[in-house]
Design a protein around this nucleic acid. Structure first.
Lengths: 332, 332
DNA sequence: CGTGGCGGTCGAAGCGCTTCGACCTTGTCC
DNA sequence: GGACAAGGTCGAAGCGCTTCGACCGCCACG
């Protein structure tokens, strides 16, 4: 029994007679044989490892990042790959290191800025990569993300349909805008476009993730624009505090203030009242990212370019008809 | 110039003349040469990769886990290692896979239960490992964790010193106790021991991380034991809601209710009022874990066994003398 | 019955490094 | 001045796999 035969049994790259295959598999089982990953990688020029780049930047909400990461790892395992974790602004040099040393076969890059310094590098590297997020110039890149523009539009449309004509976007911390993070910008653009299209007043403000900041931001917002009756939130950690702040300010949700969130469904459903939301399907996005990478690795000349996961809105208990509309109806 | 010479320059395992060294380094720089990781691993029997096992179990607070993970990655990089991410209860089989295939050199295992099924496996694996957390039987293991027993004791002592004699531990979600997670159990034990030693009444209750659960749990707690004036919280995500609940229940912090947390310092300082706390130094623990692993890899016959990071209490604005003591003092 | 083709197996040649022992040079000491 | 040691460098032998081309025996067809 030649070593090569065993190799072919394990990889399935050549046809093997059933008897031989069984004999090999039995022996593998009995001996508890595991191919040496380095030898395999050296000979085959494939490490079966993906790099996952998570820059832990200020203002990013960790549980969401972790949800992406988990989806990436889980999916990678399904395609027989492992995941190397890159963080902490090793940034460019980290990418160069792991790719040029052939430690990994491909890269998943998260938390992408509009003008991300890593993007030019990704174009040069002799290695497939997928971005979770969309930079300004997507030439030659494969990107996947939620369609945040549409997400914001749908929120505005939903509120406008309910009769609200003065609504605000309570966005991410300002640091996230400052560094021009893609998803925050696209949400903002969608919000503005939809507000204009529908002819409603749209105010935007960033918001830091502390109780006091929420209290201050929302307080000022409602003082400056008392007519606001609809809120769109893209900022998971402030959701809890926000509900408290509104309560404290005497605004009932949804009677006095309709509230929409762009967040994971379980987060929306965990609140009281349950929030109408556009879902952020981290699982789905992480999975698709890995699948796109695997396809690239297998040489499928498929779908480069940007894949935007369609926004899906679920109306729950935190939105209702605008107060004016409501009172009109009751007085009618 | 022999390849071996280059290898010796890069590894420093043999002395090289300064001229040769410079010449090699210059060439490496100019050519942008990077050693192939697989070839290196195959020849040297060292992959320079550590596995980090993060089972994302119910009730674990993700940001804290991520803080550990970041510390591990950062420290690993300082020792020229990378980190492979293992999650999603690949559990035992994942450990076997990466170690037997020599994908990694060593293992960091987080979120350890008292009777963790992975522990026997770790003893058998031909590969060093470090646990972040402490199981019941530590024979042959290297563990590192905060001294949660002492942490709880210090909280009780601090409150008792302030004159509180009826205090409660608001613990982790019950799922965490149910699976006998080490840190939760040791905190509980420390709390009970200290309460007994100091002769104060100590009540414990788990708490789920939702606003309603906090409201319910704390409501029932204070109804059943109205005399409680001190609270110890080991459950990061409920800290925000808890402050709101206490406000809603008309208990001022710290005047009516002293509050201690076991959590990261930045979390304690971000609250209003800032919380007296025993710090959970995830950075330090993650770093020490990696350093212990590296030491093992280098064959230092050092410190097996359990390393408990001493608990450090910082008094901030959320604790003060017990109401009775206070009134006694003011009436005196 | 002879021949061509094909499915199945094998041997050997690397993959790109590390490491060992050998070798050469130079300096040092008697 | 010669022998020896130490310091530097080199060549070759692997590390454990994958993969290529060759080979062998079998069946089907002419």
């Amino acid at each position: 029994m030649a070593a090569s035969t065993v190799s072919y049994v394990l990889s399935g790259k050549r046809s093997i007679s059933p008897e031989t295959r069984d004999r090999v598999q039995e022996a593998v089982r009995v001996l508890g044989y595991r191919p040496n990953a380095s030898a395999r990688a050296l000979a085959s020029n494939r490490s079966n490892v993906l790099a996952l780049v998570i820059p832990l930047r200020a203002g990013m909400h960790v549980p969401v990042l972790m949800q992406f990461a988990t989806a990436v790892v889980t999916t990678a395992r399904r395609y027989d790959h492992d995941v190397l974790l890159l963080t902490a602004d090793e940034g460019r040099s980290g990418l160069e290191r792991v790719s040029q040393s052939a430690l990994v076969d491909a890269l998943v890059v998260m938390d992408v800025e509009l003008h991300d310094e890593r993007v030019p590098l990704l174009r040069e590297l002799p290695m497939p990569s997928v971005l979770i997020g969309v930079p300004a110039d997507t030439e030659g890149l494969t990107c996947i993300d939620l369609d945040f523009f549409a997400a914001a539009e749908q929120c505005v449309d939903h509120l406008t349909d309910l009769g609200h004509h003065s609504i605000a976007l309570l966005g991410t911390p300002s640091a996230v805008y400052a560094r021009q993070t893609g998803f925050a910008h696209r949400t903002l653009a969608g919000f503005q476009a939809a507000a204009e299209r529908r002819g409603v007043m749209g105010i935007e403000t960033p918001c830091e993730p502390t109780f006091d900041a929420v209290l201050g931001t929302v307080g000022e917002l409602l003082e400056a624009h008392p007519g606001i009756t609809g809120l769109v939130v893209q900022n998971e950690p402030i959701i809890g505090p926000l509900l408290d702040v509104l309560r404290r300010l005497g605004r009932r949700v949804p009677e006095d203030m309709s509230l929409m969130a762009i967040c994971a469904d379980d987060v929306a459903e965990r609140q009281v009242p349950q929030l109408s939301s556009v879902t952020l399907p981290a699982d789905e996005i992480g999975q698709q990212a890995v699948e796109a990478l695997i396809a690239k690795l297998e040489g499928h000349r498929t779908s480069a370019g940007v894949t935007l996961v369609p926004a899906r809105l679920t109306a729950r208990a935190s939105t209702c008809a605008a107060p004016e509309a409501h009172s009109e109806r009751t007085t009618a």
